[in-house]
Each structure stands twice: as C-alpha cells, then as structure tokens.
C-alpha cells in the first residue's frame, strides 16, 4: 500500500498568494496534484497550515502544527497520518508531476530521491512511514533539512537521467513570472474575468470585462482608466480587490490565473 503526501504549508511569499489555489488545468493547483497522485497511490494526505483553507479535495487534510519548522515538519505530519508503508512526498506546486514518475520512485521499495543537476530533490522523494520517529528526533535536535531524513534512511539516490519525467516532477514555480510563463505554454487560454461592482460598475457601464492572464496590475489595466483602480503602484485606496471573493489583495505583482475572477469593490464596503 502506497501513499502520497502533498505539502502546502509554505508561505508562498515570493508568489504573493497561496500556491495551492493557483489555477492549473481548470482547478486549484493542489487539486491537480492530488488528482495526479491519486492515480497511482492508495491514499493522499495533504499537509496544510492552520491559516490556509483549501478547496474540497479527495484527500485527507491535516494541519501542520509547526509550519515554522519548515518542510520536514510537514513531512513528519504527513507520515503520522498515512497508512501505507511508503509515501511519495511532493510540494504543492508540481504541475507537471506524472503518475509514471511517482510509480517509478515508489518501485524502489525504500527511501529514494532523484538528483537533478547534482542536487538531491527531497520534495519529490519517497519516505518510509517508519521514518516518522527519525523525523521527530531530527526536529528536536533542530536539524530541519529534509535531506537529513533521507540520509538517515539510507535512501537511494537516483540520477535524473535514469528517470522519465523527473525534471518535470521537480519543476515548480516560486514567482509570478514563473507561474505565468508556465500557464502561457500550458494551452489553457481561459481568460480572467474582471468583475466590477458598485461605483465601478456604474462608471464603466458594465459588470464584466474579460482579459488574458497576467499579474494583477495587467488585469486591472483592462478596466477603463477613469476608474483609477491603480494609484502609486498599488491598488487604489478607494477600491478593494478580491480573487474569486475569497481573499483580498493589494499587491499588484501577484499572478491571476486562467478562469479566475478579479472582483473590484468599493473600499468602504460595509458600514
């Protein structure tokens, strides 16, 4: 019995928004990764932070009790909740992960990790459930690198050249530019919908404007300029902007993915 563990407790600070929610192939990134994993494992556990709500997933979602300790704490949390003897661990931003790659990694029957350009990839690796105690003791001794856990398991290091789809499996994105570049080559040309409410709607004379994916700045630029949605390099103080109505944001650099709705509200909403 094999398991998959998806880590999405990171802060996504360079991306400016949670990677788990970035759209990919018509669904949030975390849902895409869970689906790919589910094709070859018997169970999937998603390790999330207390602060991050996730979309509905066909997986068990557990909370990382100590996200400040980094990914090793997430791996520990995941191992504590899997039933399978071996678990493939991946970061949430693994859009090109293939079931075949996961299957190959699990076929080694022990801890295993690929090496790409001389660098071992511990977040595209297999860990035995029995490594749980070791993970705990490493964290207790303030050794937080996942590689230390692999090393303690006598893991198999696999050269990327031996593996089909390896480089794709470890290819994520940390910045808006990386994400948008990947989207633009993915074949998904669904537009972003800019929704105008309140005064913005009355001024523009319409409720919706479709525009290509881009940063928030690029999306807001699709609105009539007289709305003054952007001022001094930020979302104007008299407006609020929300992605799909869940989170609110002011950072113009964040990426807006295919099919997402950017909602413009009056800043004095409420009251």
């Amino acid at each position: 019995m094999h398991a998959g563990i998806v880590l999405c407790g990171g802060r996504s600070s360079r991306m400016g928004r949670a990677k788990a929610w970035l759209p990919w192939q018509g669904r949030p990134m975390v849902a895409h990764v869970v689906e790919r994993l589910s094709e070859v494992v018997d169970e999937v556990v998603v390790v999330s932070s207390e602060q991050l709500d996730l979309p509905p997933l066909p997986a068990r979602v557990v909370r990382d009790r100590e996200p400040e300790l980094g990914p090793l704490a997430g791996i520990r949390e995941g191992l504590a909740h899997v039933k399978g003897e071996l678990a493939y661990v991946t970061a949430t931003d693994a859009p090109f992960l293939t079931p075949e790659f996961v299957k190959t990694m699990l076929s080694y029957g022990k801890a295993a990790a690929p090496e790409v350009d001389g660098i071992v990839q511990p977040l595209a690796a297999v860990y035995p459930r029995s490594a749980l105690a070791c993970a705990s003791s490493l964290l207790e001794s303030d050794r937080r690198r996942p590689l230390a856990l692999l090393e303690a398991q006598d893991y198999r290091r696999v050269d990327a050249a031996e593996l089909t789809g390896c480089e794709d499996a470890v290819r994520g994105f940390n910045t808006p530019e990386e994400y948008l570049a990947a989207v633009r080559t993915s074949g998904d040309d669904s537009p972003v919908v800019l929704e105008l409410l309140g005064r913005a709607q009355l001024a523009a004379g319409r409720r919706e404007i479709e525009t290509p994916v881009g940063t928030l700045a690029e999306v807001l630029a699709a609105a009539p300029p007289e709305l003054e949605l952007v001022q001094e390099g930020r979302v104007a103080r008299h407006h609020l902007v929300s992605i799909d109505g869940r989170s609110f944001l002011r950072d113009l650099r964040v990426p807006i993915g295919p099919g997402e709705h950017v909602i413009v509200l009056d800043a004095s909403v409420g009251g």
């Binding site: 929704e195 409410l197 309140g198 005064r199 009355l202 103080r237 008299h238 109505g245 909602i263 509200l265 009056d266 800043a267 004095s268 909403v269 409420g270 009251g271």
Partner: peptide, 19 residues
Amino acid sequence: ATAKYRDLGTVANLAAFNR
C-alpha cells in the same frame, strides 16, 4: 473615501456581500 455613500448609499453592500 465617502463616494460610495454619496453615489449609492449603504445599499451598495448588498451586491458586494452577495458576490
């Protein structure tokens, strides 16, 4: 800062909250 109240009033909250 007060344009919402002037142009639409507090009633503007309804569509925003509904959305």
